[in-house]
Amino acid sequence: MLMCRDLARIASDYIDNELGTAQKLSVKMHLMMCRDCRSFIGNLRASTDLIQAHSSYKPDPELVRRIDEQVAQALNAKKN
């Protein structure tokens, strides 16, 4: 029988629909009976949504400046 700790190990696979039919069924059975694991799955899913919604994946301005400079130089060298 699947225990809470076993479910926690494969929770991401369940969320991403990466489990086989038998394992998925045993997770669903467990979730029907276990409020804490339902909460964990819900929380893990929400954490994943948070990462996706997090908008500050901005490039480092100093790195961008250096790249712009190098690209501009290389483009100019090509034109001449």
Partner: peptide, 21 residues
Amino acid sequence: PNGRWATPPSLRFEEDAESLM
């Protein structure tokens, strides 16, 4: 030791991810 939660998740999301961010 029996594999059940001893300290279960305390987190309750009431807002969607966009609002939380």
